[in-house]
Design a protein around this nucleic acid. Structure first.
Lengths: 271, 271
DNA sequence: ATACACCTTCCAGCAACAGGAGAGTCAAGA
DNA sequence: TCTTGACTCTCCTGTTGCTGGAAGGTGTAT
């Protein structure tokens, strides 16, 4: 029988930790002195402690370990739990690798440009959204105003109020000087009949690379460039039409408000 | 100006988190209604929030982010902090990869043997230790008794008391039937003169793969086998003589006490 | 006797929030 | 105009695996 300090030295586990394991019921000392409260351990408990530490290194929480040690665990159960840990560990390796890649991308970018980008690109999952839309080919993006008018008019006619932020889908895969294939969209909730021009569709949930642009539309291309570059540098591929989300609803008719805030979203997948 | 719920939806950040960032001083709403206490945000604050999230993904703590945003950070400082994150991220990738390897090794082992090993192998760093020792070649390990007598006698003569657990170093690289080159060691604190037979040396700190054996010495080889197998399966290499550490001091003269607890330690390095 | 190392319990703190209680606020429908 | 339901507020607790410290009792070597 040895006291906690010696047990701590032999096992290379701090006294605090041993007391904590006692409290958690993981490793009780074989005896506790009635009068002094001193914990007394046996040398043979070192192997149990070793088992606890080994399980901890495999990624089990102390609670899990407690259950594993208490229950006479069947081999199958143990295998199941290990498989779970395996999946989690794989995920973490993946996450950390990606984080590392982003840091390195950022460092490279700083080397090249000698300043920090105005734009921060984020990967996020956007939910599925039901929207009414009009799709058409227009000479240049600023010419989409008429389409908005058409869509709003139709919604007002059917007494449907949009319930989200409106956006434009750009269907062209490559940059074009003229004749843009785009689709203006307004999220809605209820039922709306379609017409020749107005369609209602549910866009599925997707993973998006996003950046936010503050200011007038005429500098929006900077945001596009920043995202495209980020995607290239971080190993993502564009897998669908990009969205231009108009965050602050233009009350005065989508004119060049200096306070305009726009989010660019590209559906992507990891290469 | 929008309320926290809408800001939350636009940014995909929970209301709780936004309030927390406010409290931390990371992202203050542009206004707080005097009478109701409602937080009011601007659309343009979304880009700041995006920046916060981007930095968070790079591995910065909220405290770091706060400083980064407050101070007009020089490019050099930023680079330094990123380099730090890079090192940490590398370390974590490494750790998680190793954890994954261990889980998979454990799973393989369960497949093969259809039971859980009695032994749990742990990697730990043992500190440097100063010890008095006698090295000799003896026919078989149980013949080391005389060496222990010699060492203890010498220590007693010089009024030096051992201050740790004694152990034996096995210097042979391969298994031998007869004639083992071993060294019995007793950790000491003070100064001790050497003699023809008794040496005093400081063993440097090393990384060890350890397992604990409960019971008599005649089954110790099971523990050795378990460690060797684990090392092979987890990608470690033995880089020095192994230690057999006698955890509970034999009071009655190192006889076969059934309560004996022994730790086997192999100095190793990752392949 | 006294110093000093060791042991005890209890409480606080970490990081980045999530959950919930209890109370006040706002806008739309009856 | 009233009510209902959705929002919002602050404040408190809990999460994980410990570490650090305070206040007080114990054991032993000189």
């Amino acid at each position: 029988m040895i006291r906690i300090g010696d047990f701590s030295k032999l096992s290379c586990v701090s006294v605090k930790t041993l007391r904590y394991y006692d409290e958690m019921g993981l490793l009780k000392p074989v005896a506790v002195d009635r009068s002094t409260g001193y914990r007394l351990y046996e040398y043979s408990q070192l192997s149990l402690l070793n088992r606890i530490l080994a399980l901890k290194e495999l990624g089990f929480s102390l609670e899990d370990i407690g259950r594993l040690l208490d229950d006479g665990l069947s081999l199958e159960q143990m295998r199941g739990m290990l498989k779970l840990r395996q999946v989690e560990a794989r995920q973490r390796v993946c996450d950390e690798t990606e984080r590392l890649a982003r840091i390195e991308s950022r460092l490279r970018q700083m080397e090249q440009e000698n300043n920090m980008s105005k734009y921060d690109v984020l990967i996020k999952k956007v939910q599925a959204v039901k929207a009414a839309s009009v799709r058409a080919v227009v000479p240049t993006p600023p010419d989409q105003g008429a389409l908005w008018g058409e869509l709003e008019g139709y919604l007002a006619l059917h007494r449907i109020r949009p319930n989200g932020t409106c956006f434009t889908l750009y269907h062209d895969e490559d940059y074009k000087e003229r004749d843009w294939d785009l689709e203006v969209c307004e999220p809605i909730d209820g039922e709306l009949p379609e017409s020749q021009r107005i369609k209602v569709k549910t866009l599925p949930a997707v993973t998006m690379a996003c950046a936010i642009h503050n200011g007038p539309f005429d500098t929006l291309n900077e945001a596009y460039n920043a995202i495209i570059k980020w995607l290239d540098s971080n190993g993502y591929r564009i897998v669908g039409p990009c969205r231009e989300v108009y965050l602050n609803p233009a009350k005065n008719g989508s004119q060049a408000d200096p306070e305009t805030v726009t989010e660019i979203q590209f559906p992507v997948e990891k290469i």
